[in-house]
């Protein structure tokens, strides 16, 4: 059970575009909603209406400030990058092999990593083994919760065709999340990864994640777009005329600005 499959027919996963994510947290909310109302134990909250609220989430959005180095002695503007993070459905998932009960498993047909909640003893070792913080022990249910890649949506024939994708992907208003088969080089997601230089998180951990992240595109250099702008300079620098005389006269007064 907790042995990993040697290979999987498909590698279903997400491609997350750090260039277009606006950090609205809509994916967080839709994920919490779908996964509380459907498969498995609901995602509980603790002290939801107090100052010390906490709860179980399968998807969280971090925000990072990235400071580029100086360019030709000029300091560069920092970039703000929103960073959604959920289970990466790793090929070499360390969370699966450490499980003592066989509750954690990776499906050989599509590569999705799941938890059988009836077998989970809630020891938490899989969360220790995951470098990404993708697994959270639900305090109410006492079992490990993680992203299921909305396995109860993607194969669900009761849903209209366009809804058969993970709730986070379906809801993203800026198209920053894409779902597909990353084992198929012809799939939309694989092409996206190839063209945009998709990368792995913490490659040195050796987990071989299925999910890929697309880097933010380089910032444009702002062009001079208004030909009249130089003529509309609000401050006279040439030192001629009445304004220049007034400037000098006022400066000459006691306490005047030089």
């Amino acid at each position: 059970m907790t042995e990993l499959p040697t290979s999987t027919a498909k590698k279903l996963g997400l491609v997350i575009d750090l260039d277009t994510c606006v950090g609205c947290h809509a994916c967080v909310v839709s994920c919490k909603g779908w996964n509380t109302e459907n498969y498995g134990a609901p995602l509980s909250d603790q002290n939801a209406y107090s100052g010390a609220a906490s709860g179980t989430f399968l998807n969280r959005v971090h925000s990072y400030e990235v400071q580029p180095p100086m360019l030709r002695d000029e300091p560069q503007a920092a970039q703000l990058i929103h960073f959604p993070k959920s289970c990466l459905h790793c090929d070499d998932a360390p969370c699966v092999t450490v499980c003592p009960t066989g509750a954690s498993y990776k499906r050989s047909e599509d590569g999705i990593v799941l938890v059988n909640e009836q077998d989970c003893i809630g020891c938490g070792l899989c969360a220790w083994a995951c470098p990404y913080g993708a697994r959270e022990l639900d305090e109410k249910a006492g079992v490990m919760k993680k992203c299921t890649l909305c396995v109860d949506r993607i194969y669900n024939e009761n849903l209209p065709e366009e809804d058969r994708q993970p709730a986070c992907v379906r809801t993203c208003p800026s198209n920053a999340r894409h779902f597909g088969d990353l084992a198929d080089p012809e799939s939309d997601v694989s092409i996206l990864v190839a063209e945009r230089g998709g990368f792995d998180l913490m490659p040195e951990q050796g987990t071989k994640p299925t999910n890929k992240y697309l880097p933010p595109r380089p910032k444009d250099v702002e062009p001079e777009y208004d030909i009249l702008a130089p003529y509309l300079e609000p401050i006279a620098k040439d030192g001629k005329g009445f304004i220049s005389w007034l400037d000098k006269a006022l400066s000459a007064l006691p306490g005047g600005a030089k």
């Binding site: 010390a52 609220a53 990072y64 400030e65 990235v66 400071q67 990058i81 969360a127 305090e139 992240y213």
Partner: peptide
């Protein structure tokens, strides 16, 4: 933090805003 976020090729990474106001299991 650079390998964790994959953003090291742009510059130094700093956590700007956590995903939530409170704490969590992790």
């Amino acid at each position: 933090m650079e390998t964790a976020t994959g953003l090291g090729h742009i510059g130094t990474v700093r956590a700007f805003e956590p995903p939530h106001t409170g704490t969590n299991y992790l």
